[in-house]
Design a protein around this nucleic acid. Structure first.
Lengths: 194, 194
DNA sequence: CAGGAAAGTCTACAGCCGTAGAGTTATAGG
DNA sequence: CCTATAACTCTACGGCTGTAGACTTTCCTG
C-alpha cells in the first residue's frame, strides 16, 4: 500500500525504510498481535524472511516502528505548544488529523491498538515515556508537569480511539468546529499551570 | 480464575454465567483477537466446545460480554452525574477504579483492547453508542450533548488506557489526589453546558 | 569480465486459533 | 430403578502465525 509497484532496485536502506513504513501502517491498523509479518512484508513488496533479516524479530520491528511513528507528531506538538493559544492549536490539530477520511496518526494509534498485548504495552510505555511525554512536559510550566503532560496525551489518545478506531458517530460525523470548541478549554486548562 | 475449583454441578445457567464472567476477564486483559476460546473456557472450568454451544461463535460471545460489562459502570455513572459536583465525582470514581492494583474496569477495557480488531470495533461502536453514550448524554443539558458525552467517554477511556493498559508512570505512581484535582475541572467543563 | 558479497526468496516446522460433529456422562422424571 | 434428555467432552481439521536455515539472484568491485 506504500505505492511501490515496480520491483525496486536492490537497495538495502530503501528496502529497510519501505518495510518500516509498511510496519507503521499495518501496526496502526491491526495492532501488535493482529499485524502479521507476511502482511507487513507484502506491503513493502518483500517477503517475510527479509523483514526478519533486517529487524531480527517482531518485537524489534515494533519498537523501531513505534519510535519512528512518534518522532513526527512530536515535532508538530512542540511548535504547537510554543504558540499564543496552545490549547486551541492542539484542539485544531487533533480534530484535523483524526478526520474520518484522514490518514491515521499512527503514533498513538499503534500504541492504542496494541495495548492489549503485554509485550507491546511494555515497549510502548518505554517509548511514550521517553519521547512524547517528556517532550510535552518540557514545554509546560508550573506544578505537576509530568501528570499534566500525561493527561494531555490521554485525552489525545482517547479522542483518537473513539473517533478513528471505534468510529463513534458523535465524533466522526460532527462539525469539526464544534469539536474544536469543546476540546480547546480542556487543553487550555491542562497547558496552563493549575 | 473465577474461583471455582470443584467440578460444579450440571447447571446450565450457572455455567453460562461462569463462561460470561471468564469472557469479560479475558477479553479485558487480552482484547478480542488475543483472547482464546480455550482460555476463556478454562477460566470457567469448561471446554471450548461448550462455549460454542452456549454462545454460538466468538462474535456472539464478545457482544454479550461487552454488553454485560457495560451495564454495571453505567449505573454508577448515572448516580454520579446526578450529584452536586458531577465533575469531581467522575474524577474521583475514575481515579479510584483505575488504581494500579484495582480490578480492571472491564467495560471500557474490553473495547479499548479490542479496537484494533475490525469486527470487534464495529460491535463495540454499536454497544457504546446504544448504552454508555446514550446514558451519559441523557443526563446532560444544553447544546451538543452527544458530542460532550462522547468526549467524556473519550477522556475516561484515554485515561484508563494510559494508566492501566500502558501503565504510564506519571499516572500510575502519582498521588491520586493530584490526578483528581487535575481531572475535575475537565469533567466539570464537559458536564456543564458550554 | 569474472568473482564474491550482499540482497532477497523458497520450503518447512511447530504451535496456536476457531470451528465441527460424534461420542460420553450425569441428572431429572416416571 | 430405569430411561430419556440435557450437559458436557473428545478428536480432528484447515488455516494462520513467527521462526529457521538453505538456497538463488543481483550488484559492485577488482
Amino acid at each position: 500500500m506504500t505505492g511501490e509497484t515496480r520491483p525496486r532496485k536492490r537497495d538495502a536502506t530503501a528496502t529497510r525504510a519501505a518495510i518500516l513504513a509498511s510496519a507503521r501502517e499495518v501496526f496502526a491498523r491491526s495492532g501488535y498481535d493482529g499485524a502479521g509479518l507476511r502482511e507487513i512484508a507484502a506491503g513493502a513488496g518483500v517477503t517475510a524472511m527479509l523483514v526478519r533479516r533486517y529487524f531480527g524479530d517482531k518485537e524489534r520491528l515494533f519498537a523501531e516502528a513505534i519510535a519512528a511513528a512518534n518522532s513526527a507528531p512530536i515535532i508538530a506538538t512542540q511548535s504547537v505548544l510554543k504558540g499564543e493559544h496552545p490549547g486551541a492549536a492542539i484542539a485544531e490539530a487533533l480534530v484535523q488529523l483524526t478526520a474520518p477520511g484522514a490518514k491515521p496518526l499512527d503514533g498513538f494509534l499503534i500504541l492504542l491498538n496494541s495495548a492489549s498485548s503485554v509485550r507491546a504495552a511494555q515497549i510502548g510505555r518505554k517509548v511514550i515515556e521517553s519521547a512524547p511525554q517528556k517532550t510535552v512536559a518540557a514545554l509546560l510550566e508550573g506544578e505537576n508537569v509530568e501528570q499534566r503532560a500525561a493527561l494531555i496525551l490521554s485525552l489525545v489518545a482517547g479522542f483518537q480511539m473513539m473517533r478513528q478506531a471505534i468510529g463513534l458517530g458523535a465524533l466522526a460525523d460532527s462539525d469539526p468546529r464544534v469539536l474544536e470548541d469543546l476540546l480547546t478549554p480542556l487543553f487550555e486548562r491542562l497547558v496552563k499551570e493549575s
